[in-house]
Design a protein around this nucleic acid. Structure first.
Length: 976
RNA sequence: GGGCCGGUAGCUCAGUUGGUUAGAGCGCACGACUGAUAAUCGUGAGGUCGGAGGUUCAAAUCCUCCUCGGCCCA
């Protein structure tokens, strides 16, 4: 700069904004949260949206214990992006968050507390215990609510739904009583982990595994019927199937033997025996080949004393029928004179035992499933205290586990009887890991207990049959005809589960939940028609009481008399004290939220349920079954499932691996917007990875986007409606960008409509950082900074930036809730101003201008050749800034007519440009993928304008020294 | 062990009905600018598309097996 040329910087219109480059989100986000609460954004939106088409996202309730983990954050952020985007697209998008409050984990916490104080749970009145559970849940709800809010999740936080609300408990009971009245409900039995010491059922998590010394026995089951697959009589008749078990006491309850068709089996013959041996010469045994040797060893036979006769195929095994080893025993009174079928089962292995599994459906999980599948009879041989029922021949009254947790005589009694019957082949002892009660530390047993079931394949009989007559039919047809699945794969997963699932076990022997509000007739059998009391008047009394007092009413003194009233004699009925599976609670939310709340859904059906893939087995599933039983169809029209959060390497997060990422940690280090951006950048249809590197990357992307927004704010400084230019008056470049906005509008709406946040964000991010920042802004900086304030180009550019601003900020606001609010307020400050009260700007199809876009595509290709050639000169140190260049561009005659040199110089950010349709000369710079276009470099002629830095021939010939004519005019105009 | 899902550059993702040298952004390296400046602009280097077979003129894409990982069951 020479001494006589003034500093022109002040005469430029440089971008001006107070918007900080660095966000400081962790510190500032809480302020915006506070502000939203103060102006009541959620309520205002409800008021504003009145009369709009509703969109109901129904919240799957998290369990009210413990702090949030990253999976919760992912889930709620996705929900929030759905709700916000639907609202801004013109819907009335309500969101009522909920909590799941009943259930075992909370009971444990209270029990733990009792134990620490040396208090006995069983000595505490039920309602006192329930009260403590309720208070515990309330405490965590308050904590989790704050943690969710901190993530920027909007919704009706002041009035969420809780499964333990009195009204909810009333509705859950009512929904259950619908099952009672329609006949879907029945009493059956199922083996559960049972502690004879405490006389109670235990959940899996209440079990500890310790070493335990058990009996182990090998028992012969005589084959009494055998056919070849051809129908001919089989030689296997009269042979014996060998089973192995560590629970001899279950033999009296045997109903089948299981084999695995994948295992190879053989027929073995005993050739000779040592003394003192239960095997008999000539005996023929069926054993898995892999285990035969070990079995004979246990039976004290040495090599050579037995031989393998032949293969036995699974087809042959399938047709065998055995007798119970105690069949015909004297004094058994025919107790065991039934047939024992041979059944195929995948759970059978040839790693231990004999390859045949003794099956007692009342005393094992696999056994039970096999029993249900093949219609085996349940037995009721074992009582609450772990003793055999008195009427059981030989063993009545014998105890399996004594009240002190020691072994009773049941096992040896059974063994002795088997020896007597000649059914034993071998016996021994084994030390193995065995389940024990976490409370008494005593061994537990599998024992079938009465449980309440919902029949899945029974005709419901409530007349709501448009999707089928049974729960299963209704569910399967809903899946295909009513529900839209995102992603599609969710459909198959739920379908195959519901297709294959057994009846729903509704009852739990627990205290913290909604009771199965029903009465059974004393001394009646479950099969009797009057076994269950079905009385609408009684039901209504229960509902009324629960509404007022909650489900505690069921446990209050005199409840039975109160509910039965004068219509039934309390002495004739037993009150059921089991509680409902908590999945029935959450499966009923559609009734007490969607149906009963004014901010529920018009038709009681949600537009969307959105949860992790584990909820195919959980909430999607239970809600489906529950609703199909009570209202004949799915409670949702849409289901979105997301994957699980894994660490950076794709491994499961665990405290022991030290690879966990807590939401709180992220909000503290980066801010909730970064976490939300991480969600938007990820593909939620599969598992998502998160870790330090990924978060750093996300923060980098954020910074880049933030700077682009900052530039727009600066460029729009002082923008007023007077300078707005109509599209038809704009330069072509501006029309191209309006066209792109119109296209983006369509893309963004379509993306949000199908919950494709990743697609939306990538399109917007790419547009902002590439189309705008690297191209459009770079080109228009000259006009924005240097043109006279009223120049058409400058005003057009500001108009386009304004339109872009409104769209980008609103489109991104469902994702970056804090930052977009910050950006919005920078331009539109005001006590009640908020981007979250805006809708997306109306689509502008009239902005479409495909011809301009087509010409721009061509111009951009030519530009690439120019900038490519310039880069070469820059590398050769011929130029630094592109404004030092005045290239000559060789294009086709058609192109030449479309390129205006003055504008195209701006587009290429050079001082001068020459466009010619002469053929491309040798030595010109070209790009292989842009044929017919060449560039020959030349330095710009003239002097550098001290104001706009272009090198032009006329610089220095104007009133103001050292500037070009445009800048001279601009300075004069500014002087007014 | 079973059902379902996934493995494309350091990271996040594209890749249409199998069809030219597998794309983008971020990050990285180098350069330019110093009027978006703890910014901005440009150029470049990164991939045996988890592995092995097979079908085909042609496979990231279709088939089989294996492997690693995830959810849910057993």
């Amino acid at each position: 700069m020479s001494a006589e040329t003034p500093d022109y910087k002040d005469t430029l219109n440089l971008p001006k904004t107070d918007f900080p480059m660095r966000a400081g989100l962790p510190k500032r986000e809480p302020d915006w949260l506070k502000r939203w609460e103060e102006i009541g954004v959620y309520d205002r939106l409800r008021a504003k949206a009145e009369g709009r088409e509703p969109f109901t996202l129904h919240d799957g309730p998290p369990y009210a214990n413990g702090h949030l983990h990253i999976g919760h954050a992912l889930n709620k952020i996705l929900k929030d992006m759905v709700v916000r985007s639907q609202q801004m697209m013109g819907k009335d998008a309500r969101y009522v968050p909920g909590w799941d409050c009943h259930g075992l984990p909370i009971e444990w916490k209270i029990e733990e507390k009792y134990r620490a104080k040396g208090k006995d749970k069983d000595a505490v009145p039920v309602n006192e215990f329930r009260k403590e559970c309720r208070e515990f849940a309330e405490g965590w709800i308050d904590i989790q609510r704050e943690e969710f809010k901190r993530l920027g999740v909007t919704g009706n936080w002041d009035d969420p739904y809780l499964t333990m609300d009195f009204h909810a408990e009333r509705v859950i009971a009512e929904e259950f009583m619908k099952f009672l009245m329609t006949g879907v409900l029945y009493q059956g039995s199922k083996p559960v982990m049972w502690s004879p010491v405490e006389k109670t059922a235990l959940a899996e998590a209440e079990i500890e595994y310790h070493d335990h010394k058990s009996h182990t026995i090998w028992v012969k089951f005589p084959v009494v019927r055998a056919l070849e697959p051809t129908g001919a009589r089989s030689e296997l008749l009269g042979t014996q199937v060998i089973i192995w078990t560590t629970t001899p006491w279950t033999i009296p309850s045997n109903k089948a033997v299981a084999f695995n068709p994948e295992i190879s089996y053989g027929l073995y013959e005993v050739i000779s025996t040592p003394d003192e041996c239960w095997a008999m010469v000539g005996d023929k045994y069926l054993i898995a080949d892999a285990l035969a040797e070990s079995v004979f060893t246990q039976a004290r036979l040495e090599e050579g004393q037995w031989s393998r006769l032949r293969d036995v195929t699974s087809e042959q095994l399938d047709l065998l029928v055995m007798a119970h080893p105690l069949r015909g025993a004297e004094g058994a009174d025919g107790e065991w004179d039934y047939d024992v079928p041979m059944l195929p089962g995948d759970h059978v292995t040839d790693e231990a035992g004999t390859g045949f599994v003794h099956t007692a459906p009342s005393h094992g999980a696999d056994d039970y499933i096999l029993g249900v599948k093949h219609g085996l009879q349940m037995t009721y041989n074992v009582l609450e205290d772990g003793s055999f029922r008195d009427s059981l021949p030989f063993f009545g009254g014998e105890v399996i586990i004594t009240p002190k947790g020691k072994e009773g005589k049941a096992n040896t009694a059974v063994i002795d009887k088997l020896v007597e019957a000649g059914a034993m082949l071998a016996r021994g002892r084994i030390t193995h890991s065995y389940p024990h009660s976490w409370r008494s530390k005593a061994p537990v047993i599998f024992r079938n207990t009465p449980q309440w079931f919902a029949a899945i394949d029974r005709t419901v009989g409530d007349g709501q049959d448009s999707y089928g007559t049974t729960i299963r039919e209704r569910a399967l047809r809903s899946i295909d005809e009513l529900v839209t699945w995102t992603p599609q794969t969710g459909r198959n997963r739920l379908y195959s589960m519901i297709e294959a699932r057994p009846d729903w076990v509704l009852s739990r022997q627990r205290a913290w939940g909604v009771p199965l509000t029903c009465f059974v007739k004393k001394d009646a059998q479950p099969s009797d028609p009057d076994f269950l009391l079905r009385d609408e008047v009684v039901n209504a009394r229960i509902a009324e009481a629960f509404e007022a007092e909650g489900a505690d009413a069921w446990y209050a003194e005199g409840a039975k008399e109160r509910f039965l009233g004068n219509d039934h004699n309390p002495n004739d009925y037993e009150q059921v004290f089991d509680i409902l599976d908590v999945w029935f609670d959450s499966g009923s939310t559609h009734a007490f939220v969607l149906r009963d709340r004014p901010d529920g859904s018009e038709d009681g059906t949600a537009d969307l349920y959105l949860e992790g893939t584990d909820q195919h087995r959980g909430w999607f599933h239970s809600s489906m079954l529950q609703a199909c039983g009570t209202r004949g169809q799915a409670p949702y029209r849409g289901v979105l499932t997301h994957g699980f959060t894994l660490d950076e390497k794709g491994m499961k997060m665990s405290k022991s691996l030290g690879n966990t990422v807590a939401p709180e940690q992220v909000t503290k280090q980066y801010g909730a917007d970064i976490l939300r951006l991480w969600v938007a950048q990820s593909d939620y249809t599969v598992d998502l990875r998160i870790g330090p590197e990924i978060l750093k990357n996300t923060a980098d992307s954020y910074r880049r986007l933030r700077n682009t927004m900052r530039f727009m704010l600066g460029a729009l400084d002082g923008f007023s409606e007077d300078e707005r230019v109509a599209p038809e008056d704009m330069p072509e470049l501006e029309r191209v960008y309006l066209h792109q906005l119109a296209e983006l509008d369509e893309q963004v709406r379509a993306g949000y409509a199908k919950y494709d946040f990743q697609g939306v964000f990538q399109a917007l991010f790419h547009f902002a950082t590439v189309s705008l920042s690297a191209v459009y802004f770079d080109i228009r900086k000259d006009a924005l900074y240097c043109d006279p304030v009223d120049s058409l180009t400058r005003r057009s550019a500001r108009t386009v930036i304004d339109e872009t601003f409104h769209r980008l900020v609103t489109w991104l606001s469902p994702i970056l809730v804090f930052t977009m609010e910050e950006v919005w307020l920078e331009r539109f400050p005001g006590e009640e101003s908020s981007v979250h009260l805006q809708d997306f700007p109306e689509p502008r199809p009239d902005w479409r201008h495909p011809e301009a876009q087509g010409r721009w595509n061509m111009a951009r290709d030519v530009r690439r050749v120019v900038t490519g050639g310039l880069e070469l000169q820059r590398q050769n140190k011929v130029i630094g800034s592109s404004l030092e260049a005045a290239p000559k561009v060789f294009v086709s005659p058609e192109m030449a007519t479309l390129l205006d040199p003055e504008h195209f110089a701006d587009v290429c950010i050079v001082s001068q440009i020459e466009i010619t349709s002469e053929p491309v000369p040798d030595g010109a710079f070209t790009l292989p993928d842009i044929p017919g276009v060449g560039m020959v470099f030349a330095k710009a002629e003239g002097a550098k304008c001290q104001r706009c830095w272009k090198i032009l021939p006329d610089v220095g010939q104007h009133a103001n020294p050292g500037v070009c004519s445009r800048c001279n005019a601009a300075i004069e105009a500014a002087k007014g």
